[in-house]
Design a protein around this nucleic acid. Sequence first.
DNA 1: CTCACCCTTATTTTCGAAAATAATATCGTT
DNA 2: AACGATATTATTTTCGAAAATAAGGGTGAG
Lengths: 233, 233
Amino acid sequence: MPDRAIRPRKEFGKTIAADITHRLREEIIACGLLPGEPLRFDVLRERFGASFTTLREALTALSAEGLVDAQEQRGFRVAPVSGQDLVEVTDARVLIDVELIRRSIQKGDDDWEIAVISTLHRLKRIEQRDPEQALRDAEWKIAHRQFHQALVSACGSATLLAIRAELFDRAERYRYLSANFRPRPRDKAGEHQAIMQAAISRNAEQAAELIETHIRSTADNVAKYAGHLLEAG
Amino acid sequence: MPDRAIRPRKEFGKTIAADITHRLREEIIACGLLPGEPLRFDVLRERFGASFTTLREALTALSAEGLVDAQEQRGFRVAPVSGQDLVEVTDARVLIDVELIRRSIQKGDDDWEIAVISTLHRLKRIEQRDPEQALRDAEWKIAHRQFHQALVSACGSATLLAIRAELFDRAERYRYLSANFRPRPRDKAGEHQAIMQAAISRNAEQAAELIETHIRSTADNVAKYAGHLLEAG
DNA sequence: CTCACCCTTATTTTCGAAAATAATATCGTT
DNA sequence: AACGATATTATTTTCGAAAATAAGGGTGAG
């Protein structure tokens, strides 16, 4: 494996640019890079071991996703957060997720049901197995994302799924941002269970209602306990 | 104006990359670059007079907008078209535009009404003034875009407006693609007039219905008269 | 004749130097 | 001291050469 020696870092994607895009996205979502923080090339160059132009390509891609803010001739910075933005992202997510879960419930086949059930199962196992938080969080967040992804995966529109994925990422960043300030959520396990049951029993109206409540209550929680972070910038 | 001599091409945006992104977007939408066509750097370099990396940045941005297809290690090509994609874009547009026009009707102030009325007025003037087609088309398309933009501009969500704009561009490309094959549309002027009236009189339900019909009938027309172009790619 | 392999060519991808621009500090004038 | 103009520094942006990768072509073994 001589490649490994020559170019150690290329875990995701075939090109370095795609890899860096992926790593930067993860860091921004997890607030390892804080909202509003300037993204200077010198710093990024050292941190990610890539050249100006490769970094520039990654930042341009993330700019289109709404995670990075490009200020022409004055560089890039992590996209700032705000109460207004949180409201917009939440509203857009409700609009799209509600529609997509309706379509998935209408079109979903056996494989879809299996995906919904198994991703929820994994999520619950993680919640039960390890009441610790540190290790749990990363794994839980992946499982959580996959469950919600599975719910809408049968909607039939790659276009809307791509838009949904971007909005999910933007919302996830707010959850990370507020994670240290808000208490553990009330009964998320119960909510997920109810959503799964409504979906599998093909009760579109109930599933739509539950999803909307789920998304909005999470956002409300963020706003309630991290409101002080949303207007400073 | 010494800048002009040193760097002739920078009409849009402050950076060359932003300018090229803009010009490439226009050409792809207008099908000056055809769906599926490979975008080789040698060719683009000569055509746009920019370097590899600058072009790469532009292509990356357009890739995120769905107008360019990035194939890792194998370059870029104009995003292909298909019947499935047309259906998805149309569906997504209906979902979002219908919602945004409802919100605009609820929130729109005097300035919004003025924008709707005046953009429609301009559109009608162009239609009446110059029954020629060649010159009309470019101008008409701009006015048409601005009218539809005005209708939803008061919705209050920059997030959803950005998503809407991307979908509009993708749909516009299909209209260009089919322009040479389909007859002049039936009564677009009448449809626009009706939409404006419903909006101004704050009849949200009627406006929503008219917009949906408007979007779907345009897409149907494209599929009907340019169907043969949609599966070759 | 077919297929796998290596070699050659075409193309993309990455890099760091150099140019362009913005930010900051310095200085002279009022 | 306050202000504006100018020089200095910091940072971004652009470029084309060089490295990496894919595509194409030919050769020989089976």
